[in-house]
Structures are given as C-alpha cells and as structure tokens.
Design a protein around this nucleic acid. Structure first.
Length: 861
RNA sequence: GCCGGGGUGGCGGAAUAGGUAGACGCGCUGGAUUCAGGAUCCAGUGGAGAUACCUCCGUGCGGGUUCAAGUCCCGCCCCCGGCACCA
C-alpha cells in the first residue's frame, strides 16, 4: 500500500498552484466578488499557531467561496513598521530594514508551506516607500481639511520604548507592548480629529451589529462613550468671568453645594493668582501628576485645594466654594464640574472629607433621605425636592425641563459629550513612516509638497545604544527647504503610530501597484471587505481607526463605502496546558517525567499542571507550526486547527488531537486509493441513480444530506468544526456500507465514485493538497481548487421513512420506523399495540396525544 | 460597581425552529493482528442499579411556563472578557 507521503504531495501542489497562477484575482465586474481578508501579521520572525489558525480560517472560506463561483480576492501583506525591529537592531546590530525583510522572507515561506490560497502578486509591506507615500499624502489632505492638527498635551509616555502612546495603547497602566509603567509628560505632537466622526462611528455600529460580534460592538460603544447632559455657567465674581461646567445630571442642579476644577484648568490658575495661592496650586498640580496612575485607576483618595473663591449658582444666586480636585479630568467635558454630594458618590466622598454641605434634591419614592444620616450618595431617579419651581417633578423629566430653563435664561445649554479623544499619532521612533511636515521660521508649519512625496525614511543610519530615534541627529534629513518660501527649514522627526498603516491597507490590496493611491475601478469593485478575520485584541484600536480612516477617505473622495469590513469574525486564541516546577518555574513538557516530576538536573520536584494559557515562550507552552508541518503535514495542521473548536472560541492545542486528524487523513487517503484503479473510467449522471439498489439508497441520501450540511457550515455559518464532523460521520457510514458493495455491479461502482468524488471536494477547502492529489487519482485533470463545490439533490434529502420517537408523559419509551405517509390516526392505533408502549398505557386514561410530524408522538395519560 | 459572553460525559465540543441530550474527535476498556512494541482494524464507553430484557437519575443551583425545557421566564451561584472617579 502506498504511504500517505504528505511532504511530497504538498510540495507538488504548491508548485503547481504557483506555476498556473491558480489564485490570482482579477477585477471583473461581470462576476460577483468576495473579498476575504485576515489581519496581516507583524513580521516578528516566525509565524505562530495564532497566525496559523487565523489564516486557515480565512483560507477555508476563500476556497469555499471560490468553489461557489465567486471572484475571490484573498491577499496577504506585512505590517512592517514597528518597535521590535529597532530592538532587534539594538540587540543584534542588524539594521531594522534588513531584520524586517529577512523576517518577511522567512514567514512568507512558512505561509506558502501551509498552502494558503493568496494572490501573492498583491503582497505589500507597509515599510515600503511606495506604500507609505500615500499615507503621507492622506495626512497632508487631512491637515488641509483641519482633521490633523498639532497640540501640546499631557501624553502617555513609555520610558522603555522612548515614545508616546495613544490612550488605547495603555493597558492596566502599562505599555501595551512592553508592560512598562506609563508616565505622563507634556509634549507637542500631531493629532487626528477622530472625535469629529464620533457620532457617525457610533451610529453606524447599529448597522454593524448584525454582522459583527456583539462584544466588539459593545467595546466600541463604551470606548466612544457618548453622554447627554448640559453645560451650565457659574459666574466667578473674583475675576468677572463665567465658569462652564458639564453635567449629565442637570436635574440635581439645586443640590450643587460646591464647584471643582481640574488642577490643569486655566481658571484655576487665575483664581489662585488672585488669592496668592499660586505656589499652593503648583504643588497641588505636581502632586496630581505624580499620582495620576492611582487617580486614573480610582485608587487615590479624593483630595482638593480650596481656592478661597466662590461661584454664583445660576438659579439660586448662592455662593458656592470653588476647589481644585484631583479627580476632575481636564480632558473630559469642560474640566470643571458642579458638585452634588447628595447624588454623586465622588462628590459625596469629597464633601465628607472637607465638611461641605450636603443638600438633598431628589427623594426616592417611599423613603425620606436625610443629609445627616446619608451613608452614600443617592444616584438613582426620584422626585425632585428643594428645587424651586421644579419641586415635585420626577427627576427624569427635570433633566430636560431644567436644561430648557437654563437655555431660556442664557446660562446653560444642552450638550453631548464623548469619551473618545483625538488620536495622537506622533511617535518618537525611527522605524516608522515619516510625518511629512516641515517647520519654517518664516512660514511656520508647512506640509511637504505632494510631488515631493514620499518623504523617505533614511536607511543609512546607526541605531544608538540608548534606543532613541536617530532621526533628529541626521542633519541631511532634518535640514530641508521650506516648500512654501524655499528658505531653510527643518523636518518633523517624529514618525507615525503604526496603526496608521493598518488603517487603510485593506484598500491598497485592491490595486497594490497603481501609481495613485487607488484605482477607482478596482476599489469600487472589491471594497468593502466581505469577511474580515482576526484577533479580538484589535476590537477597539485597529478596528476603530480603520473605520475612521474609511470615513475620512470617503470624505476626501477616494471611497464610496462608509464601512471597511462588512462581516467580522474574531477568532479565539490558541492555548495550551502549562507546567510549573516549584523550583524552576515554567518548564517545557519534555522536562516533565511521566510521573509528573521535574527532570531538570537534581530537581525531582512535583510538577504543578497549570491552566491552559495563551501560547508564549515565557510559559514554555508554545508549539512551533514548522515542527507540526514537518511531522504531520500542512493538511493535518489545517484540519486539526479548524476542527478542534468553533472559530470564535479559544482552541486547546492537543498532541493527541492532531494525531487524530492525521489518522483521519491517512484513512481517507488509503480508502480512495483502494478504489481508484477500479473507478478510473467510471462516469455517472444523477438520473442513473433512480434505479439504485434499494439497500444503497440510504447511503446516497446520507451523501446528499452531508453535502448540504457542509455547504451551510462552511459557507454560511462559518462553523468549520461541525462541517468537518459531518464529513467524518459520512465516511464512517460509507465504510460500514463497503461490506454491501459489489464491485462487479456497475451501479455500485458509480455510487462509490460519486461518494469519493464528493467527499474529496468537500474536504478540499480544509485539506487542499491531499484533495488535489486524490482528485488526480480519481482520474481528473483539473485543479480541484478551481472546481465547483458539490451540489446536492433535493429529492435525495427526503426520506420515505423516519424514526418516530414515542413518548408517554414526555418520557421516551420506544422508537418505531414509520412511513412519512402514515396518518397520525394510523400511527396512534399501531403504536398503542406495541409491547413497550402498551405497558405504560395499560389501565390509564389517555388524556391527550401530541403528534409532531416527522419527529415524535407523545401520549399524555 | 457597570456592560457583555459563558457554565453540557474523563477531555475538546455537537444539539441551527421548544421535540430522542452527548454528533464528531480525543482518551479509556476489551478483542484481533504482531516475536514484541508501535501502527492498524473491530467492539464498548454519561452516571447508578440489574448485566437478559430493563429501570431510575442526568445539561451550574432553586423555582416556574409547557404534553415536552440544555433551549423560554423569574431568582441565585460560579467562570471568562471589556470598561471603570468620564461628572
């Protein structure tokens, strides 16, 4: 028997696919298109199992859609700018460009070995000036529309990466990449006005809700954080100016007993000066900055500084003391709040600490709150009290009534606020896209001329051991001429956040060689992406930025679409069991004895079998895709990874599990080969099966049901695990039927041929190399990758008989095979006489009989 | 605290429309083959009791609706993820 020689088979078909350009996509408006995209990888050096899973899921879908007659675009590229390249340069003395391109070459080879059906002609790397020059152009166009601007702000700073981080890149107070604690620094930098699109980004989520995972929608909604409230003016007599506060609870206005400002608030400074408190305020600001970490996480105790000033309540005329408070953020709302201790927990705590009055203005129904014995703020709705003309109103109504009243009197207005902040895109890094701006002493900030783009990142540089960007030191780069006046000027030396590149790459894939950013013919045909697949870790960052860019590019006239990704699938992580030794920490599986002891020299401690965790080098639980491909072949790896769990769930890597997948493919291979000689010349047409041997009819029916099931699971539900299970189930049944098969009978042979052909077609999106090989063995001259997905015949899906489940009082008591044509009356009469049923009915009165066609009959006694 | 998602055999997971819970795979048990191991093949495999038929229990816990609930409703517990002084 011929051995299943996967390595020869896989190499053979990979070469043939490439030679015959099988997966090249061409714009063709006469055909329906389907754009499958997986999140492109950062070229870190080697692909990991997470990539294998992501790209296998995408590849199965791309292959299914191709077989279903779609013109499929399935590209791959490299998110090639980023910090690790600089770190590698530092550590190994390799230039970031060389390191990056070497990694790309290696990883591309790995992807090819997995047999993914990419159109490699469209490959792009974001560090290529031919790519990023358009990004520079978009930025200049945004600048001209007022969507990009420069400002000084307090930024998140990672001292280890020597760069600024966006709010989205701070996780639990640490840098999202290296985990170093983030500090705050005042810096100037470029911002994109994503807040201008806040409302549209939020609103469009209602539509996306049908096609995107709910949790992603929820995360984005929270991130945008829309709130409706009011801005209210409080007059400051000391300086003769109005202070504007933002509140979502105008209904509690009469309960305001003091005012708090952010320490960064400009009016705080002015009031402090007036009262000779500048020194105290400066100290307070300093303290707040130092404690910002604790403040942001809600850990710091509330603290304030009384400015010895008062604000006039716009409706009562009362004098309210003005404080600066450490918990008031300058970046949100107006940086100033009215404080209602009775109905806001934060204000309550502050008031208690500084002995400020508490005034109740909302009473819950049936309870009478007293300021003296209040233990926490009452934040829920109720009936308004002590609220002048509004007393007696439900607080829900009071919100809009008070706001309207304020508007009428000119001391306030309705206001919508978003939590979303503008996107800071400046990074003090070398390995990134240069920001195409020039600083001229005479003309100020001037964008580079479009015809001078790209501003090329100089590659002839030495990476300094401090890890700082070499760009500011490169006089050839820095010194330039002003695009406006031609005089001497200096270049911007910051580079873009790398999320810029990934915000529009999906569109460039439609026309990667076009001399302009986009060829309208191509992008209007291919966009949007029909199915986007990637990790949940990008639920906010990347997906929100890409949505924002899409809207901007639409408004700049490039796109016609509003949203970049129609359907989104967020696949789970690949996780594996971990082992921990009490002495040595995490250990490799090879370092654990069969008795569960540590095998490190002289150790012998009992190993703690840990949780399944995301594969990582530090936890010693990684499985290298290369090793698996070598041992089992790409088809087995693809099969296991798409079978072991539904796509959106975490997948537990199992060494036994992959053995099972391998076993299945060997079985399939040998089964087909066993018959290929006898079947080579056999052809069949569906009409011929009308005279099929009755004992084989159930087999053909199962075949057609399986085709239907797999078709739905693979194409519509994206549940590859159940689709594959259905194929396995059919093959099990098929093998049972082999005893019945007579190879001298022509009809039998035709049926076997049909079964094998269809099974091979069904499995082909998952295991394409093996499928191509078996297709050839079955006498076919075409690529199975270019074949049509099998059809099923409706007539063969229906059964003449079925197993009727018999219940008595809802409990299963019997099963009978019955004809679909039998009437309920006939069935009832027949079943009552059956022994198994009879004993439950004897001596009982039948109260009701429930009959569910083709399913069950239930006697209620 | 708020917002999502989830809890099904020894394990990963099925059950798409309220209708046989446990498909498929792993593991395990027994058998065949083999000098032996591995590989392969066959049979069994939710639990308890009877081991011939069969009976009872069973989808996190407690109630409910229904002829019928893993699935719907109410209350609770636990796990995972996100957000969290955003006024």
């Amino acid at each position: 028997m011929k051995k299943y020689d996967f390595s020869t088979i896989e190499k053979k078909w990979q070469e043939l696919w490439e030679k015959h350009q099988v997966f090249e996509a061409k714009t063709d408006p006469s055909k329906p298109k389907y754009y499958v995209l997986e999140m492109f990888p950062y070229p870190s050096g080697r692909i990991h199992m997470g990539h294998v899973r992501n790209y296998t899921l995408g590849d199965i879908l791309a292959r299914v859609k191709r077989m279903k007659g779609y013109n499929v675009l399935h590209p791959m590229g490299w998110d090639a700018f980023g910090l690790p390249a600089e770190n590698a340069a530092l550590k190994h003395g390799v230039h970031p460009a060389k390191w990056t391109y070497d990694n790309i070459a290696y990883m591309k080879n790995q992807l090819k070995k997995l047999g993914f059906s990419y159109d490699w002609r469209r490959e792009l790397a974001t560090c290529d000036p031919g790519y990023y020059k358009f990004e520079q152009r978009f930025f200049i166009e945004m600048y001209e529309k007022g969507l990009a601007y420069r400002k000084t702000s307090l930024v998140n700073w990672c001292s280890s990466c020597h760069t600024v981080l966006a709010n989205e890149q701070v996780e639990d107070g640490g840098c999202w990449r290296c985990g170093t604690e983030v500090t705050y620094k005042e810096m100037e930098g470029w911002f994109l006005r994503i807040t201008a699109y806040a409302e549209e980004l939020l609103k469009e989520l209602d539509e996306l809700e049908k096609y995107w995972p709910e949790r992603v929608i929820v995360m984005q909604r929270n991130w945008i954080g829309k709130s409706e409230g009011a801005e209210i003016k409080f007059f400051l007599p000391e300086i003769g100016e109005d202070l504007i506060v933002y509140t979502t609870r105008p209904d509690t206005l009469y309960g305001a007993t003091f005012i708090s400002l952010s320490s960064e608030h400009p009016l705080a400074q002015r009031l402090a000066e007036k009262k000779g408190l500048s020194q105290a305020l400066a100290e307070f600001i300093d303290k707040v900055r130092k404690e910002r970490r604790e403040i942001e996480t809600g850990m710091a105790e509330k603290e304030g500084l009384f400015l010895e000033s008062y604000a006039i309540h716009p409706l009562t005329g009362e004098k309210l003391p003005v404080y600066v408070a450490n918990f008031v953020l300058m970046e949100y709302g107006t940086g100033a709040i009215m404080c209602v201790p009775a109905h806001d927990q934060r204000d309550f705590e502050f008031a208690k600490k500084y002995n400020l009055p508490i005034k109740i203005v909302i009473q819950p129904e049936g309870i009478n709150l007293n300021p003296e014995d209040l233990e926490e703020a009452y934040e829920k709705p109720g009936i308004m009290v002590n609220s002048g003309p509004f007393t007696g109103l439900p607080s829900i109504e009071g919100k809009s009534k008070i706001t309207a009243y304020l508007e009428e009197k000119g001391v306030g207005r309705k206001k919508i606020t978003y939590r979303l902040r503008d996107w800071g895109v400046s990074r003090q890094r070398y390995w990134g896209c240069p920001i195409p701006m020039v600083y001229c002493d005479k003309c100020g900030i001037v964008p580079e001329k479009l015809e001078n783009l790209p501003v090329v990142l100089p590659t002839d540089v030495q990476i300094d051991f401090t890890g700082r960007s070499p760009l500011p030191l490169l006089s050839d780069f820095v010194n330039t001429t002003c695009p406006k006046c031609g005089g001497p000027a200096k270049r911007e030396t910051d580079t873009f956040d790398t999320f810029m590149e990934s915000s529009w790459y999906f569109a460039r894939f439609a026309c990667p060689d076009y001399p302009e950013p986009f060829n309208p013919e191509d992008i209007h045909y291919w966009l949007p992406v029909d199915q986007y697949i990637g990790g949940i870790e990008h639920a906010i960052l990347h997906l929100l930025y890409a949505r924002f860019f899409t809207k901007v590019l639409r408004d700049l006239g490039y796109f016609k679409i509003n949203e970049p990704f129609k359907n989104l699938l967020t696949q789970g992580m690949v996780i594996k069991e971990t082992y921990k030794c009490p002495v040595h920490g995490w250990v490799y599986p090879e370092e654990v004895s069969p008795e569960g002891r540590c095998l490190k020299t002289g150790c012998g401690q009992e190993i703690i079998v840990g949780k399944f965790e995301k594969m990582s080098k530090s936890k010693c639980n990684v499985v290298d895709p290369d090793v698996m491909i070598k041992k089992y072949g790409a088809d087995t790896v693809r099969l296991f990874i798409s079978f072991a769990a539904p796509p959106e769930k975490d997948l537990e890597w199992s060494d036994h599990g992959i053995e099972g997948a391998y076993r299945f493919l060997k079985r399939l291979y040998h089964l087909v080969l066993e018959y290929t000689e006898a079947l080579k010349e056999i052809e069949y047409s569906s009409e011929e099966f009308k005279n099929l041997d009755p004992k084989l009819v159930p087999l053909r029916k199962k075949l057609h049901k399986t085709v239907k099931k797999v078709s739905e699971d693979f194409e519509k539900r994206l549940r590859f695990n159940t689709g594959i299970a259905a194929i396995m189930e059919f093959l099990n049944l098929f093998q049972d039927y082999l005893k019945e098969i007579d190879l001298n009978d022509m009809m039998h042979k035709k049926l076997i041929k049909e079964c094998l052909k269809k099974v091979v077609l069904l499995i082909s999106p998952v295991c394409p190399h093996l499928a191509e090989e078996l297709w050839q063995e079955l006498g076919k001259k075409t690529f199975i990758s270019c074949e049509r997905f099998p059809d099923y015949e409706e007539a063969w899906l229906v059964d003449e008989t079925y197993m009727l489940v018999v219940q008595v009082n809802g409990k299963v008591r019997d099963q009978v095979e019955v004809s679909v044509e039998a009437t309920p009356e006939e069935l009832e009469a027949m079943i009552k006489e059956r022994q198994k049923v009879k004993k439950y009915l004897e001596g009982k009165q039948i109260k009701n009989v429930v009959f569910v066609p083709k399913k069950l009959i239930n006697f209620v006694v």
